[in-house]
């Protein structure tokens, strides 16, 4: 079915608010999903994979910084979704880059890392260049990287399925490199292990956005019903008394 971007965002905000996300976090989560979908990067498909787990994060430990120096930090997100923790990690990298020119933040135990692209794009808009790298899968690994230059509005994105298998060090990790001095770009090395690559440059990302602005967004009806149903958790039952508070 067809929806506009703003009503999708409002619906997602209610959905995450009802799922225990804090003020500030539920806006971030909605914006991250919408950003991916709006720019042709399948935010709703990623959301569909996330939905069965979204209630669980409210019982998990918050992100902890397990190592930090002036240009680097390592964060353990305790198996949280990127939807509620990755923006803070990117902010930390952003701050360190502003202080020291370049910084690296590594996030462990973080799911749905694709959602980092919105936070990364915000950094680019604000004059800081960022690269992100992560990989997924167990039997065969898929690698991902995204990058944005300082002052730009759209990132590039690359995905490459490989023949490599995961090793014991693979911990749902995301690496963020951020610089206020160096313009960073990224691409996956075309090593012989890389097969079936998928790339989108900044111009293609922008064209996808223009199409979404022009025509809105298509969403699977069942998914739309599901996020609306979850979002009903923020609504208050109507009563004789409550009707007196209506304007």
């Amino acid at each position: 079915m067809h929806v506009s971007m703003v009503e999708l965002k409002a619906c997602l905000r209610r959905c995450f608010e009802a799922s225990g996300y804090f003020v500030g976090n539920y806006e971030d989560a909605a914006n991250m999903i919408l950003w991916l979908e709006k720019h042709g990067l399948n935010g709703l498909a990623e959301l569909n994979r996330t939905l069965p787990y979204i209630y669980q994060d409210q019982d998990k430990e918050g992100s902890t910084i397990i190592y930090e120096d002036s240009t680097a930090a390592v964060i353990d997100s305790h198996n949280r979704s990127a939807l509620n923790c990755i923006a803070a990690a990117v902010d930390l990298a952003h701050a360190k880059a502003l202080e020291n020119g370049i910084a690296t933040v590594t996030v462990h135990n973080c799911h749905n890392r694709m959602f980092v692209l919105k936070a990364l794009t915000d950094c680019g808009r604000r004059g800081v260049s960022v690269v992100a790298y992560w990989k997924n899968g167990t039997d065969s690994i898929t690698e991902y990287t995204a990058a944005i230059k300082a002052g730009h509005r759209y990132p590039s994105f690359h995905e490459g399925r490989t023949n490599m298998s995961s090793d014991s060090t693979h911990k749902q990790t995301l690496t963020i490199i951020c610089s206020s001095r160096v313009d960073l770009t990224s691409s996956l090395q075309h090593a012989k292990t890389n097969v079936n690559g998928n790339s989108m440059n900044a111009q293609q990302v922008e064209l996808n956005k223009e199409k979404s602005v022009e025509f809105g967004i298509e969403i699977d009806e069942a998914l739309w019903r599901q996020i609306n149903r979850i979002g009903e958790g923020v609504l208050v039952e109507s009563s004789q008394q409550s009707r007196m508070g209506a304007g």
């Binding site: 003020v23 958790g233 923020v234 609504l235 208050v236 039952e237 209506a246 304007g247």
Partner: peptide, 25 residues
């Protein structure tokens, strides 16, 4: 808060009504 009736915005009194846990920010 938002009422379940068409999400109509409403005002509640915390001491006599339920729903403060779902208030808008």
């Amino acid at each position: 808060y938002r009422s379940e009736e068409k999400m109509e915005p409403r005002l509640g009194q915390a001491s006599i009504e339920l729903g403060k846990d779902r208030q808008m920010a």
